[in-house]
Design a protein around this nucleic acid. Sequence first.
DNA 1: CTTTTCTTTTGATCCAGATCAAGACCTGGT
DNA 2: ACCAGGTCTTGATCTGGATCAAAAGAAAAG
Lengths: 258, 258
Amino acid sequence: MSRERVVNLSEVRTQCQKCSLYQLCMPMGLGEGDLNKLDKIIKRRRPVEKGEFLFRLGQDFSSLYAIRSGSLKTYTSQSDGQEQVIGMHLPGELIGLDAIGSHRHACAAVALETTSVCEIPFDHLESLSREIPGLQQHLFRLMSAEIQHDQCHMTVLARMPVENRLASFLMSLSERYKLRGYAANEFNLSMSRGDIANMLGMAMETISRLLGSFQDQGLIQVERKHIRILDPAGLQAIASNCRESSGKPADNSSSHSA
Amino acid sequence: MSRERVVNLSEVRTQCQKCSLYQLCMPMGLGEGDLNKLDKIIKRRRPVEKGEFLFRLGQDFSSLYAIRSGSLKTYTSQSDGQEQVIGMHLPGELIGLDAIGSHRHACAAVALETTSVCEIPFDHLESLSREIPGLQQHLFRLMSAEIQHDQCHMTVLARMPVENRLASFLMSLSERYKLRGYAANEFNLSMSRGDIANMLGMAMETISRLLGSFQDQGLIQVERKHIRILDPAGLQAIASNCRESSGKPADNSSSHSA
DNA sequence: CTTTTCTTTTGATCCAGATCAAGACCTGGT
DNA sequence: ACCAGGTCTTGATCTGGATCAAAAGAAAAG
């Protein structure tokens, strides 16, 4: 039972209960009381402007960040100064998970547009998740999902020709947008061609050519940053990578002939 | 390094308290009581023979596995039937983390040699980690480290020429062996050339040529599966990737060898 | 032991995609 | 509006590594 809803200020302050994304960022069945506890440890901060850092490489880790709106990219810098884009992050996603172990951010996070985030101090979250079993479970699942996603990306980078990589990226974006209630087949790329190319391990020119080629094949329609997917099945066929959420049934596994 | 295959029953019943690896697999400061609780939920099972599956792709997830001795590779299969090697796993490492979220293994794990593991039922581990704060914290860190490691591998695959990838792989192996008390500069590859190539996103022939070339440059000495690193600093210079290790500066154990 | 089979090495060729180059297009600043 | 400094597209060339091919070792089987 909630005893009080202290909304004393003119409340720009969105609460978890009212956030349309909490289903994504903390979707386990938390009671109202638990949600309140969570809400109390979360810090809201002014939006991060385009090009601004949410955190930098090497910075001490203290909080995870849940993206409320906008988008960010994360990237590392190599010894030669080259930057390597690790990922692009949409509303409802949690970033910073990679820094828990080392207490230091292994990548930098930069806003691709004006972006608002919830800052979640990790030590508080950790102790809270001891009190709330569902929260602990959810964190394990989120981290596991991140591992699975990264392994999928590794596979894409290791084995696939460029055409497949781009198709795979587009379909993944489409799925993620859909999941959070946006149109699945029409969206804006917030990353530049250069960043996309970097992330997919190819040259910007190649991205450009492929987008043109996909358009010629009637798979998509491109206009600057705006993408419309005309033939999702066709694109998916090209992507044909590890379906991240696939549930292939397992046969009975006792075939261990010694 | 002598390979011991002595597996008798008393050894199979080794307890966490007596396990030389628990520092790696569960290194937080657990009291004796806590260690006992952990010990109680762990199942020991007969060793997995070379080529046998520990778990298969798509199989229902129920347990994590801590590797006690031996080694395994994990891999996924793509829609075209191609297998993609995800990683090679050494004693002291925990595998299966990627399946927590989906409750289904997204990769298969095969023993590369006779391998013994501790099976840790995850639901028990989860509830135990609610009781033991240090255990919860440790699990978060392990998962985070896995994420960081995977991101590092993504970077290697996306940006590096083959020479760097292989050097990076060898140095990473060296570090991991060192961490668990084996010789850092002399070890056996338990994976075939083909598997290594697959994992690093290149052709087996290229691995073969590069090993030869590294040997010609005096960086390593290769004899079949046995590798001896002669010039760690030189190899590291070629690898020059994201330093995975938390705070440790690279050691220059070999003072000077020309 | 010999034969078969699998793994690795070595050599020769080829091509996907990088790089180089140059022009077109946006976007923001004055 | 104009100009300057990005970002994107398009075309021409080049090359790192894949692929193809075949022999040489190891290991396993008879």
